[in-house]
Amino acid sequence: MFEEVSQILVVDDEAVNLELISAIFIDSPNIVILTARDGVEALEILKNHTPDVIVLDIRMPRMNGIEVLEVLKSDSRTSHIPVVVLSGDDRERKNALKHGANDFIPKPFDAEELKLRVINNLQVKKYQDLVRNINEVLQKELMKKTKELREALELAKEAEYEMVVKFGMISEFRDEETGQHIRRISYYSKLLAQLIGLPESEQNIIFYASPLHDVGKVGIPDNILKKPGPLTPEEFEIMKLHTIIGGRILTSQPKFITLQAGKIIAEQHHEKWDGSGYPYGLKGEEIHIYARIVAVCDVFDAITSDRVYRPAFSIEQAIDIMKKGRESHFDPQLLDIFLNNFDEFLKIRETFKD
Protein backbone atom coordinates (compact mmCIF):
# COMPACT_ATOMS: atom_id res chain seq x y z
CA MET A 1 0.00 0.00 0.00
CA PHE A 2 2.86 2.39 0.76
CA GLU A 3 5.87 2.60 -1.53
CA GLU A 4 8.17 3.96 1.15
CA VAL A 5 8.88 2.01 4.32
CA SER A 6 6.69 2.91 7.29
CA GLN A 7 7.46 2.12 10.93
CA ILE A 8 4.87 1.11 13.52
CA LEU A 9 5.83 0.99 17.20
CA VAL A 10 3.77 -1.49 19.24
CA VAL A 11 3.91 -1.04 23.02
CA ASP A 12 2.36 -3.83 25.12
CA ASP A 13 3.55 -5.73 28.21
CA GLU A 14 2.12 -9.03 26.90
CA ALA A 15 4.58 -10.81 24.64
CA VAL A 16 1.79 -12.73 22.89
CA ASN A 17 0.19 -9.45 21.78
CA LEU A 18 3.50 -8.17 20.41
CA GLU A 19 3.93 -11.39 18.44
CA LEU A 20 0.33 -11.37 17.19
CA ILE A 21 0.43 -7.75 16.00
CA SER A 22 3.80 -8.34 14.32
CA ALA A 23 2.29 -11.34 12.54
CA ILE A 24 -0.69 -9.28 11.33
CA PHE A 25 1.67 -7.14 9.22
CA ILE A 26 3.96 -9.95 8.06
CA ASP A 27 2.45 -9.72 4.56
CA SER A 28 3.16 -5.96 4.36
CA PRO A 29 6.83 -5.70 3.25
CA ASN A 30 6.79 -1.90 3.42
CA ILE A 31 5.76 -1.85 7.08
CA VAL A 32 8.39 -2.43 9.79
CA ILE A 33 7.19 -3.31 13.30
CA LEU A 34 9.14 -2.09 16.34
CA THR A 35 8.13 -3.50 19.74
CA ALA A 36 8.44 -2.39 23.36
CA ARG A 37 7.36 -4.20 26.55
CA ASP A 38 6.48 -1.02 28.47
CA GLY A 39 6.43 2.76 28.30
CA VAL A 40 10.00 3.22 29.47
CA GLU A 41 11.34 0.94 26.74
CA ALA A 42 9.14 2.72 24.17
CA LEU A 43 10.58 6.12 25.03
CA GLU A 44 14.09 4.71 24.68
CA ILE A 45 13.23 3.46 21.18
CA LEU A 46 11.85 6.88 20.27
CA LYS A 47 15.25 8.43 20.91
CA ASN A 48 16.54 6.72 17.76
CA HIS A 49 13.39 6.10 15.71
CA THR A 50 10.43 8.18 14.57
CA PRO A 51 7.59 5.74 13.85
CA ASP A 52 4.63 6.71 11.66
CA VAL A 53 2.04 5.18 14.05
CA ILE A 54 2.22 4.03 17.67
CA VAL A 55 -0.05 1.22 18.95
CA LEU A 56 -0.16 1.69 22.72
CA ASP A 57 -1.55 -0.52 25.48
CA ILE A 58 -2.98 1.37 28.48
CA ARG A 59 -2.31 -1.01 31.37
CA MET A 60 1.44 -1.62 31.69
CA PRO A 61 3.99 -1.80 34.53
CA ARG A 62 6.56 0.95 35.25
CA MET A 63 4.84 3.47 32.98
CA ASN A 64 1.23 3.13 31.80
CA GLY A 65 -0.20 4.23 28.46
CA ILE A 66 -1.66 7.51 29.73
CA GLU A 67 1.74 8.54 31.12
CA VAL A 68 3.35 7.67 27.79
CA LEU A 69 0.72 9.75 25.95
CA GLU A 70 1.47 12.76 28.15
CA VAL A 71 5.16 12.53 27.24
CA LEU A 72 4.49 12.00 23.52
CA LYS A 73 2.04 14.89 23.15
CA SER A 74 4.23 17.33 25.10
CA ASP A 75 7.27 16.75 22.86
CA SER A 76 7.28 18.51 19.45
CA ARG A 77 9.29 15.63 17.97
CA THR A 78 6.55 13.07 18.73
CA SER A 79 3.33 15.09 19.20
CA HIS A 80 2.35 14.66 15.53
CA ILE A 81 2.61 10.83 15.57
CA PRO A 82 -0.86 9.17 15.54
CA VAL A 83 -1.42 7.00 18.63
CA VAL A 84 -3.87 4.08 18.57
CA VAL A 85 -4.62 2.87 22.11
CA LEU A 86 -5.50 -0.69 23.16
CA SER A 87 -7.95 -1.03 26.03
CA GLY A 88 -10.96 -3.10 27.03
CA ASP A 89 -12.29 -0.37 29.31
CA ASP A 90 -14.55 2.37 27.86
CA ARG A 91 -13.50 4.95 30.48
CA GLU A 92 -9.83 4.28 29.78
CA ARG A 93 -10.38 4.81 26.04
CA LYS A 94 -12.17 8.13 26.60
CA ASN A 95 -9.42 9.22 29.00
CA ALA A 96 -6.81 8.33 26.39
CA LEU A 97 -8.61 10.44 23.76
CA LYS A 98 -8.64 13.36 26.20
CA HIS A 99 -4.87 12.96 26.57
CA GLY A 100 -4.29 13.14 22.82
CA ALA A 101 -4.85 9.61 21.46
CA ASN A 102 -6.04 9.59 17.86
CA ASP A 103 -7.92 6.30 17.81
CA PHE A 104 -8.72 3.24 19.94
CA ILE A 105 -9.17 -0.51 19.57
CA PRO A 106 -11.11 -2.55 22.16
CA LYS A 107 -9.33 -5.45 23.86
CA PRO A 108 -9.40 -8.30 23.09
CA PHE A 109 -8.84 -6.94 19.59
CA ASP A 110 -9.92 -8.25 16.22
CA ALA A 111 -6.83 -8.71 14.02
CA GLU A 112 -8.45 -7.42 10.83
CA GLU A 113 -9.91 -4.34 12.53
CA LEU A 114 -6.56 -3.55 14.15
CA LYS A 115 -4.78 -3.75 10.80
CA LEU A 116 -7.37 -1.53 9.07
CA ARG A 117 -7.32 1.08 11.84
CA VAL A 118 -3.53 1.24 11.90
CA ILE A 119 -3.42 1.58 8.10
CA ASN A 120 -6.10 4.31 8.24
CA ASN A 121 -3.98 6.26 10.73
CA LEU A 122 -0.93 5.62 8.59
CA GLN A 123 -2.79 7.16 5.62
CA VAL A 124 -3.74 10.18 7.73
CA LYS A 125 -0.10 10.62 8.80
CA LYS A 126 1.08 10.46 5.17
CA TYR A 127 -1.43 13.12 4.11
CA GLN A 128 -0.40 15.35 7.03
CA ASP A 129 3.26 14.95 6.08
CA LEU A 130 2.39 15.77 2.49
CA VAL A 131 0.58 18.97 3.49
CA ARG A 132 3.56 20.01 5.62
CA ASN A 133 5.91 19.36 2.72
CA ILE A 134 3.76 21.44 0.38
CA ASN A 135 3.82 24.36 2.80
CA GLU A 136 7.61 24.11 2.99
CA VAL A 137 7.79 24.15 -0.81
CA LEU A 138 5.57 27.23 -0.88
CA GLN A 139 7.83 29.05 1.55
CA LYS A 140 10.83 28.35 -0.68
CA GLU A 141 8.88 29.47 -3.74
CA LEU A 142 8.53 32.92 -2.20
CA MET A 143 12.15 33.53 -3.18
CA LYS A 144 11.45 32.97 -6.89
CA LYS A 145 10.24 35.33 -9.57
CA THR A 146 6.68 36.65 -9.38
CA LYS A 147 5.44 34.80 -12.47
CA GLU A 148 6.91 31.49 -11.33
CA LEU A 149 5.49 32.04 -7.86
CA ARG A 150 1.97 32.67 -9.19
CA GLU A 151 2.09 29.49 -11.24
CA ALA A 152 3.43 27.49 -8.30
CA LEU A 153 0.78 28.86 -5.94
CA GLU A 154 -2.05 28.08 -8.35
CA LEU A 155 -0.80 24.55 -8.85
CA ALA A 156 -0.23 24.05 -5.13
CA LYS A 157 -3.72 25.31 -4.31
CA GLU A 158 -5.25 22.87 -6.78
CA ALA A 159 -3.14 20.07 -5.34
CA GLU A 160 -3.99 21.11 -1.79
CA TYR A 161 -7.71 21.01 -2.51
CA GLU A 162 -7.50 17.57 -4.10
CA MET A 163 -5.51 16.30 -1.13
CA VAL A 164 -7.96 17.80 1.34
CA VAL A 165 -10.86 16.15 -0.53
CA LYS A 166 -9.08 12.78 -0.48
CA PHE A 167 -8.14 13.31 3.18
CA GLY A 168 -11.82 13.89 3.95
CA MET A 169 -12.79 10.81 1.95
CA ILE A 170 -10.69 8.47 4.13
CA SER A 171 -13.59 8.22 6.58
CA GLU A 172 -16.22 8.27 3.84
CA PHE A 173 -14.89 5.08 2.26
CA ARG A 174 -16.12 3.47 5.50
CA ASP A 175 -19.24 5.65 5.82
CA GLU A 176 -20.40 4.74 2.29
CA GLU A 177 -20.60 8.35 1.16
CA THR A 178 -18.87 9.72 -1.93
CA GLY A 179 -16.36 12.38 -2.82
CA GLN A 180 -19.24 14.39 -4.30
CA HIS A 181 -20.59 14.98 -0.77
CA ILE A 182 -17.20 16.42 0.15
CA ARG A 183 -17.17 18.72 -2.89
CA ARG A 184 -20.76 19.87 -2.32
CA ILE A 185 -19.98 20.83 1.28
CA SER A 186 -16.92 22.73 0.07
CA TYR A 187 -18.82 24.78 -2.52
CA TYR A 188 -21.93 25.25 -0.35
CA SER A 189 -19.78 26.57 2.50
CA LYS A 190 -17.85 29.00 0.31
CA LEU A 191 -21.09 30.33 -1.21
CA LEU A 192 -22.71 30.85 2.19
CA ALA A 193 -19.54 32.54 3.48
CA GLN A 194 -19.68 34.86 0.46
CA LEU A 195 -23.40 35.62 0.95
CA ILE A 196 -22.90 36.67 4.59
CA GLY A 197 -20.07 38.98 3.61
CA LEU A 198 -16.94 37.19 4.81
CA PRO A 199 -13.80 38.48 3.03
CA GLU A 200 -12.52 36.46 0.08
CA SER A 201 -9.55 35.18 2.11
CA GLU A 202 -11.92 33.56 4.61
CA GLN A 203 -14.18 32.25 1.87
CA ASN A 204 -11.15 30.40 0.51
CA ILE A 205 -10.17 29.11 3.95
CA ILE A 206 -13.60 27.55 4.51
CA PHE A 207 -13.59 26.19 0.95
CA TYR A 208 -10.41 24.23 1.68
CA ALA A 209 -11.14 23.35 5.32
CA SER A 210 -14.81 22.28 5.21
CA PRO A 211 -14.11 18.90 3.50
CA LEU A 212 -12.33 17.87 6.71
CA HIS A 213 -15.48 18.13 8.88
CA ASP A 214 -16.02 14.38 9.32
CA VAL A 215 -12.43 13.10 9.11
CA GLY A 216 -12.73 11.88 12.74
CA LYS A 217 -15.12 9.13 11.60
CA VAL A 218 -12.00 7.18 10.72
CA GLY A 219 -11.87 6.37 14.44
CA ILE A 220 -15.44 5.07 14.78
CA PRO A 221 -16.02 1.27 14.66
CA ASP A 222 -17.75 -0.06 11.53
CA ASN A 223 -20.56 -1.71 13.52
CA ILE A 224 -21.61 1.77 14.67
CA LEU A 225 -20.74 3.83 11.58
CA LYS A 226 -22.53 1.44 9.19
CA LYS A 227 -25.40 0.42 11.47
CA PRO A 228 -28.58 0.31 9.36
CA GLY A 229 -30.87 1.30 12.26
CA PRO A 230 -30.96 3.80 15.14
CA LEU A 231 -27.95 3.91 17.48
CA THR A 232 -28.32 3.00 21.14
CA PRO A 233 -27.44 5.76 23.65
CA GLU A 234 -24.10 4.03 24.28
CA GLU A 235 -23.34 3.78 20.54
CA PHE A 236 -24.27 7.43 20.02
CA GLU A 237 -21.81 8.46 22.75
CA ILE A 238 -19.07 6.69 20.78
CA MET A 239 -20.26 8.24 17.51
CA LYS A 240 -20.00 11.71 19.06
CA LEU A 241 -16.29 11.10 19.65
CA HIS A 242 -15.65 11.61 15.92
CA THR A 243 -15.61 15.37 16.60
CA ILE A 244 -12.84 15.03 19.18
CA ILE A 245 -10.92 12.50 17.09
CA GLY A 246 -11.13 14.84 14.08
CA GLY A 247 -9.73 17.67 16.17
CA ARG A 248 -6.83 15.47 17.28
CA ILE A 249 -6.04 14.46 13.69
CA LEU A 250 -6.02 18.07 12.50
CA THR A 251 -4.03 19.59 15.35
CA SER A 252 -1.12 21.49 13.79
CA GLN A 253 1.01 24.60 14.01
CA PRO A 254 -0.86 27.92 13.54
CA LYS A 255 0.90 28.58 10.22
CA PHE A 256 -1.07 25.70 8.65
CA ILE A 257 -4.25 27.75 8.25
CA THR A 258 -6.30 25.10 6.43
CA LEU A 259 -5.65 22.46 9.08
CA GLN A 260 -6.35 24.92 11.90
CA ALA A 261 -9.69 25.87 10.32
CA GLY A 262 -10.39 22.19 9.66
CA LYS A 263 -9.80 21.42 13.34
CA ILE A 264 -12.33 24.07 14.38
CA ILE A 265 -14.92 22.75 11.92
CA ALA A 266 -14.33 19.09 12.81
CA GLU A 267 -14.76 19.79 16.52
CA GLN A 268 -17.68 22.23 16.35
CA HIS A 269 -19.90 21.34 13.37
CA HIS A 270 -22.28 19.38 15.63
CA GLU A 271 -22.67 22.21 18.14
CA LYS A 272 -26.14 23.81 18.09
CA TRP A 273 -27.29 27.43 18.36
CA ASP A 274 -29.24 26.72 21.59
CA GLY A 275 -26.30 24.94 23.28
CA SER A 276 -27.73 21.42 23.00
CA GLY A 277 -25.06 20.14 20.60
CA TYR A 278 -21.77 18.32 21.17
CA PRO A 279 -18.96 17.81 22.12
CA TYR A 280 -18.67 21.00 24.21
CA GLY A 281 -22.23 22.35 24.41
CA LEU A 282 -21.24 25.68 22.84
CA LYS A 283 -24.04 28.20 22.34
CA GLY A 284 -24.78 30.99 19.83
CA GLU A 285 -21.72 32.91 18.73
CA GLU A 286 -19.51 30.82 21.02
CA ILE A 287 -19.57 28.49 17.99
CA HIS A 288 -17.05 29.62 15.37
CA ILE A 289 -18.62 31.12 12.24
CA TYR A 290 -16.90 28.46 10.09
CA ALA A 291 -18.59 25.67 12.06
CA ARG A 292 -21.97 27.44 11.98
CA ILE A 293 -21.73 27.71 8.19
CA VAL A 294 -20.74 24.06 7.74
CA ALA A 295 -23.52 22.93 10.11
CA VAL A 296 -26.18 24.43 7.81
CA CYS A 297 -24.58 23.02 4.66
CA ASP A 298 -23.83 19.58 6.10
CA VAL A 299 -27.32 19.03 7.49
CA PHE A 300 -28.91 20.04 4.19
CA ASP A 301 -26.68 17.69 2.22
CA ALA A 302 -27.09 14.85 4.74
CA ILE A 303 -30.89 14.89 4.82
CA THR A 304 -31.19 15.13 1.02
CA SER A 305 -28.83 12.14 0.50
CA ASP A 306 -29.38 8.42 0.97
CA ARG A 307 -27.86 7.01 4.14
CA VAL A 308 -27.42 3.43 5.33
CA TYR A 309 -30.09 3.99 8.00
CA ARG A 310 -32.67 5.89 5.82
CA PRO A 311 -33.47 7.08 2.28
CA ALA A 312 -33.03 10.73 1.25
CA PHE A 313 -35.69 13.30 2.16
CA SER A 314 -37.22 15.45 -0.60
CA ILE A 315 -36.12 19.06 -1.02
CA GLU A 316 -39.45 20.24 0.41
CA GLN A 317 -39.09 17.99 3.46
CA ALA A 318 -35.49 19.17 3.96
CA ILE A 319 -36.54 22.84 3.94
CA ASP A 320 -39.31 22.02 6.46
CA ILE A 321 -36.88 20.22 8.78
CA MET A 322 -34.33 23.02 8.64
CA LYS A 323 -36.92 25.74 9.30
CA LYS A 324 -37.94 23.88 12.47
CA GLY A 325 -34.32 24.07 13.66
CA ARG A 326 -33.98 27.80 12.92
CA GLU A 327 -33.24 29.03 16.46
CA SER A 328 -32.42 25.70 18.07
CA HIS A 329 -30.00 23.94 15.73
CA PHE A 330 -28.95 26.69 13.32
CA ASP A 331 -27.77 30.29 13.48
CA PRO A 332 -31.06 31.97 12.39
CA GLN A 333 -29.33 34.64 10.30
CA LEU A 334 -27.28 32.06 8.40
CA LEU A 335 -30.30 29.83 7.80
CA ASP A 336 -32.37 32.76 6.48
CA ILE A 337 -29.61 33.70 4.02
CA PHE A 338 -29.27 30.05 2.97
CA LEU A 339 -33.01 29.70 2.30
CA ASN A 340 -33.33 33.12 0.62
CA ASN A 341 -30.65 32.07 -1.88
CA PHE A 342 -31.73 28.45 -2.11
CA ASP A 343 -31.68 28.28 -5.94
CA GLU A 344 -27.93 28.98 -5.95
CA PHE A 345 -27.29 26.04 -3.61
CA LEU A 346 -29.47 23.77 -5.76
CA LYS A 347 -27.26 24.61 -8.76
CA ILE A 348 -24.23 23.34 -6.80
CA ARG A 349 -26.17 20.20 -5.83
CA GLU A 350 -27.00 19.60 -9.50
CA THR A 351 -23.36 20.14 -10.58
CA PHE A 352 -21.94 17.63 -8.07
CA LYS A 353 -24.48 14.79 -8.19
CA ASP A 354 -23.63 11.44 -6.58
Score class of each variant (00 low, 15 high):
M1E: 09
L18D: 03
I21E: 02
S22R: 11
I24T: 06
I26C: 06
D27C: 05
D27G: 05
I31S: 05
T35Y: 00
G39F: 00
G39W: 00
V40D: 01
E41G: 07
E41N: 09
L43M: 08
K47H: 06
H49L: 01
H49T: 04
P51S: 05
P51L: 02
D52L: 00
D52N: 08
D52G: 05
D57E: 09
R59P: 03
P61M: 06
P61F: 03
R62H: 08
N64P: 05
D75H: 06
S79G: 04
S79Q: 10
P82C: 12
V84K: 14
L86M: 11
R93N: 12
H99T: 04
G100I: 01
A101C: 06
F109D: 04
E113R: 14
N120L: 02
K125W: 01
K126W: 00
K126E: 04
K126A: 13
Q128L: 14
V131R: 05
R132I: 04
R132T: 10
I134L: 15
N135W: 00
L142K: 15
M143K: 15
M143E: 10
K145N: 14
K147A: 14
L149P: 13
R150I: 13
L153C: 11
E158W: 02
V165M: 07
V165R: 12
K166D: 15
S171C: 05
E172P: 13
R174Y: 07
R174E: 07
D175R: 06
I182H: 04
I185Q: 11
I196R: 12
L198K: 12
P199R: 07
I205R: 15
Y208E: 14
H213V: 09
K217E: 04
K217F: 04
I220Q: 08
P221D: 11
D222F: 07
I224Q: 12
K227C: 07
K227M: 04
K227I: 06
K227R: 09
P230I: 07
P233R: 15
E237W: 02
L241Y: 05
I244Q: 15
I249C: 05
L250D: 09
P254H: 08
I257L: 14
I257G: 11
K263T: 08
I264H: 05
I265E: 06
A266F: 02
Q268A: 13
H270D: 12
H270N: 15
E271P: 12
K272N: 12
W273L: 08
Y278G: 13
G281Y: 00
K283T: 08
E285C: 02
E285V: 06
E286Y: 00
E286L: 02
I287Q: 02
I287W: 01
I289M: 12
R292W: 02
V299L: 05
D301Y: 00
D301W: 01
I303E: 03
I303Y: 03
T304W: 00
R307M: 08
A312I: 04
A312F: 01
A318R: 12
D320H: 10
I321A: 08
M322A: 11
M322H: 13
K324G: 09
G325W: 00
G325L: 01
R326F: 01
F330E: 04
F330G: 10
D331L: 06
L334K: 12
F338R: 08
F338K: 10
N341Q: 12
F342E: 11
F342G: 15
F342V: 14
F342A: 15
D343F: 03
K347L: 12
I348T: 10
F352D: 15
K353T: 14
K353Q: 13
